[in-house]
Design a protein around this nucleic acid. Sequence first.
DNA 1: CGCTGTAGACTTTTT
DNA 2: GTCTACAGCG
Length: 703
Amino acid sequence: MSDLLKDLNKEQKEVVTSTEGPLLVLAGAGSGKTKALTHRVAYLVAEKGVLPESILAITFTNKAASEMSGRIDNLIKSSGTVKMGTFHSICAQILRREAHHLGYPGSFVIFDQDDSKKVIKQVIAKLGLSDKKIPVTTAKNLISGAKNELIGPEEYANYAESFREKSIVEIYKTYQKELEKNEAMDFDDLLMLTVKLFQKFPEVLKKYQNLWKYILIDEYQDTNHAQYLFVRLLSATHGNICVIGDDDQSIYSFRGANFQNILDFEKDWPKTKVVRLEKNYRSTKAILTAAQSVIERNTERSKKTLWTENETGRPIEVYEAASEEDEAGFVARKSEEIKVSKGKLSDIAVFYRTNAQSRAIEEQLLNMRIPYKIVGGVRFYERKEIKDALAWLRVASGANDWIAFERSLTSPPSGIGKLSITRLREYGEENKLKIKDLASDGNLANAIGGRVVEPLSEYFRKIKKIQDTAQKSLSSAVELAIKTSGLIEHLSDGSFENEERIENLKELLSVVKELENVKDDLTLESFLEEVALISDIDNYNESDEGITLMTLHTSKGLEYKYVFIVGLEENIFPHSRSMLDASELEEERRLFYVGMTRAREELYLVYARRRLYFGGIQHNSPSRFIAEIPPNLLDFVNGGGETEEKEIGDIQMSGAFKVGDEVEHEFFGRGKILEINDDEITADFNVYGKKTVSLEYAPVRKV
DNA sequence: CGCTGTAGACTTTTT
DNA sequence: GTCTACAGCG
């Protein structure tokens, strides 16, 4: 037997050896999925003689990709040329070579959320619409949703009825034109345009079908429609498509992910072989059972039963904190305890629903001098000062990027302000000029006004210098950009925040130097692309000492010996915006399931009786999710000293209500029941009027 | 043009 | 409580 099959269970072996044809792997949490995947790739190369370069593996993060290639390298000699990456990075690479078919230059820039919002804002103004009526974020979300569904502006127009929808159509149209003018693509374009490219140009598609004969997709439950089509097109000829996922861990529907893709896989590929990985190697029986009983409440899922040979382990500790400080104090004290008695701080993780919750925990950990690191939050490459420095580099890269142009001219101030830049852009548009043409345009003084001439030529001199330097050394170019932009002087006012910003700029330089050492073919363009598609988790190093703080979303795919989930209160988790809709609530539950199943040995669930929120005090009941765990697995601990009666398990069944009862709903307030239907009631609320709510999900009680 | 102060919004999660 | 956007002034 091949060495590659040693230490694998029967199902994992099937994953590894079923190399031909469509394969669907339903992999439960902690079921040794990555192991099966890496061994599969190694097996393809070592046993089946498949060339590494004809394998494409798509992962959810860049970090997962580099980890995977590291693990494969340990199994076989060279996996170096297996193509691995996220959907976005793979699509970007394809488009670099092929975008000319679609009328884009291969040197397009990638606009992040912030850049796209700026463009949309300009577009709304240009169309004479008010961003009061159509907020930028709304427009952005609707356009993004359409792109994920591969709906272009023309098609979108077919649905549009209301004024708002019609406005969105116009914004969408103009936005795409603006992106083209800027030679830019947003995140969604990377996917949508690649699929369009494949659909419009069969010969291009064929090229990639012939190149990648074996395709693997991890976290398939979190693919959106565009990604789904991308995969289907690429594997259409050979059908060697292996997807791995777990519908119970689908937590990204807000950005268009559709876990129906995994449930429907067998319909798309009738000859699909299905393998279920249900043996859990990660968690104790207590944790696994608890997680199972929570997720079983969901109706939209495929049935599966995880099991483990691990020991029962300790009960799950539930701590009722008096406040968010007390909550943080509990985390800090327990962490100390764990460190002293049995483990390392790096074995500990704290998960929360929203980034804002990290602050209280951080303060407490700082107080107690417990080292910690945060993954997520304001990402490094989204910081203002970093974006400012990168804007100089983006213009220097030769991109016709007006967003970066404006940014680099205004921060730090150059003497040319917003008004002049708008005029410059309009002037450029009228005369079909690109940014770089402005440098040599003799008519600017007439067209815009004399006072832009001097600062602008100064600006272009600097850009030129950065450009020239980039030919020789990227890091010198970055260093020059930081210096010549005047950012450092501008920030040198001695204030604490600005000192930190200067530190960040220095950090940027060391990141580039490091990258340069690893990749000798790093160009300015490839560096900018890498930066655009990087995520925070990609830079996270688990071996660093200290406990780890992150959102539940970020925790997917990771595991820790000791896990704290904090803020387990109604309105916080489940989040208030997700409580009124049954399927959104199920997603919250999956998120809780993901968090729980990260824990190997000990799980702590924490909620606070009162919490500071928006400067005001909020009282929330304990999260319903706690009540969904069998009580025998829980160990309740009280804290804070203050007594305040609060029961876990506020969920009532319809039998408890009758028509005419006064009820109180968490959001709709007081009302009177008009009608009861199975587990739904219709009530007339004093403020909100007639509403039907599901008792299974709605935070409603009798008064 | 660019800085300052204030009113207003805002917090779900992210490639 | 914190960040941002913008009006109004120098």
